[in-house]
């Protein structure tokens, strides 16, 4: 009788504890993106220098699309790596595009000056582009291949290694199975 009760408790208790334990290993803020492997949502944005740019114009090039804000520490952490990668790849068929969200214009300009960023940046004041890309944590980076398809998404700070590897994949048109994750801040 006693051992039967013990078995019953284990049968119910162990899966329950296992499910709870599994829950603790997961990030409740993480929102898996359905966008990888799909066509990148089209948008146009006015750059900091006043020039307009639209994603459709960049067809045929690999696009590195980075959402950021000046108040977000991981964005600061990756800023130098991003600029270094851009200087290495500029002149190739690669376009780096930064989209500033949930920020002030002074803050954004100060950030670009501080890290001496030379790739194109624009402000998405109403978060329309961010919502279109399902942004929930910044920095968030999308790699878009020549046909306008999203091949990889990374939430959180990027390092040069990942940038080079994923740019190479995007050139080949190879889409990743999973998105990457690093240190990020939730959007406001």
């Amino acid at each position: 009788m006693a051992w039967r009760r013990l078995v019953l408790v284990f049968l119910v208790g162990v899966p329950l504890v296992a499910v709870l334990a599994y829950g603790f290993t997961r990030d409740p803020r993480e929102i898996p993106s359905p966008l990888i492997g799909r066509p990148a949502p089209p948008f146009s944005i006015e750059l900091m220098d006043g020039r307009p740019v639209s994603l459709a114009d960049l067809r045929g090039k690999v696009v590195f699309l980075n959402f950021w804000a000046s108040w977000c520490p991981p964005c600061r952490a990756e800023a130098r790596d991003l600029e270094a990668a851009w200087r290495q790849h500029r002149g190739e068929d690669v376009v780096f595009l930064g989209v500033n969200i949930q920020d002030t214009e002074t803050g954004a300009r100060g950030f670009l000056r501080e890290f001496d960023i030379t790739y194109a940046n624009g402000i998405d004041a109403r978060n329309r582009i961010a919502i279109d890309y399902g942004v929930w944590g910044i920095p968030e980076t999308f790699f878009i291949d020549r046909t306008g398809r999203i091949t990889y998404k990374h939430v959180g700070a990027l390092g040069t290694g990942t940038i080079h590897a994923k740019l190479a994949e995007a050139r080949e048109g190879v889409a990743s199975n999973r998105e990457g994750k690093g240190d990020y801040r939730s959007v406001q």
Binding site: Q102, R126, N127, R128, A130, I131, V187, Q188
Partner: peptide, 23 residues
């Protein structure tokens, strides 16, 4: 709401939820 997790977009006061409502 993607920011506050346990609130709906209608209830959240976050900037993103506000922009979602406008959208």
């Amino acid at each position: 709401c993607p920011v506050c997790q346990n609130l709906s977009v209608a209830e959240s006061t976050s900037e993103l939820a506000r922009d979602m409502r406008a959208l």
